Amino acid sequence: MATIATKNEVITVIIIFSVKPEQQQELIDAIAEFLETVKQQPGFISTNLHKSIDGLKVANYAQWQSQADYNNFINNTKVQAKAAKLREFNPPDVHIYEVVISESKEGIPKIKQGQYITHFAEFRMPPENQPRMIELAKENVGKAMELPGLISANFHRSLDGTRVINYGQWLDKESIENLKKQPGFGKDSEYWEGIAENEHHLYEVVLTVPND
């Protein structure tokens, strides 16, 4: 089971595909098939596959023991040949991340199938803006955590400086709508304005694959 913590001695790889709704399940099935090979690779810890409720995204939250293990997996041509089906879809957004903020009401956050609604907030920025984006996240996460329906908020920094992703866990959609009414989170007062562009979708966890 994947756990999220700032002191995790793992690397996180977040892979986000954009798809047409009619393609979403086909992509999920193709990823699930490839995962039978992936889970056998040295250094693999877990994969947690999410599908967006609107049908437009598929997100893979994966953990590896080290960046070297992940690089060996990526550079293994025999293994990657088994991912040919995935290359029929739009190229995904792939980055390596570290957890820099983790706030939770229920201990160390864990990713489980069928437990929470998940919120991937994808912040994109030039590398020089990433430190400020993280500062702003730290300043504003407390207000979000005051909402009763938000279970955890987990900000991840991409090592290349171009992304910050908030992986949030929620009890229900109503709580997410209430967040948008809070100062700094509505369209007219976004706390990241001028620092980053943001795209966000709601997801459900559809498959978790640990290392056997």
Rank of each mutant, 00 (worst) to 15 (best):
K85D: 08
P131V: 08
L150T: 10
K78H: 06
I134N: 05
L159K: 13
M1G: 13
T118Y: 11
E174L: 10
D29S: 14
Y191V: 07
N48Y: 04
G107I: 09
E26M: 08
V10F: 09
H50R: 00
K39W: 02
F44H: 10
T162S: 07
T77D: 04
G142H: 08
Q23G: 00
D212Y: 05
A68V: 13
K112F: 10
V79A: 01
N75R: 09
I4V: 15
I195K: 12
Y191E: 01
G184H: 02
W170P: 09
L147T: 08
E26T: 10
P127A: 12
V19W: 02
I11R: 07
F73S: 04
L171S: 05
G142N: 13
G55N: 12
V141F: 09
E146Y: 02
S102Y: 02
E36H: 05
A30V: 01
Q23L: 08
I28H: 00
I101V: 15
P42K: 05
P91L: 06
V79I: 15
E197W: 01
A144E: 09
P126R: 06
I165P: 03
L49F: 07
I117K: 10
K138T: 09
P91C: 04
K187M: 10
I151D: 03
K110C: 05
A196P: 03
Q130W: 09
K112H: 11
V19P: 02
N60V: 14
K7V: 11
K78Y: 07
F120M: 12
R87W: 09
H201S: 15
D212S: 06
Q65P: 00
P148D: 15
Y167W: 15
N166M: 10
W192A: 12
I134R: 08
Q182I: 15
K180T: 13
K78S: 13
G55L: 08
P91Q: 06
E193Y: 08
I165M: 12
Q130C: 11
Q41F: 09
L202M: 11
E106K: 12
E36W: 00
A121C: 07
P42N: 09
S66F: 08
Q23H: 11
E204I: 13
E9W: 00
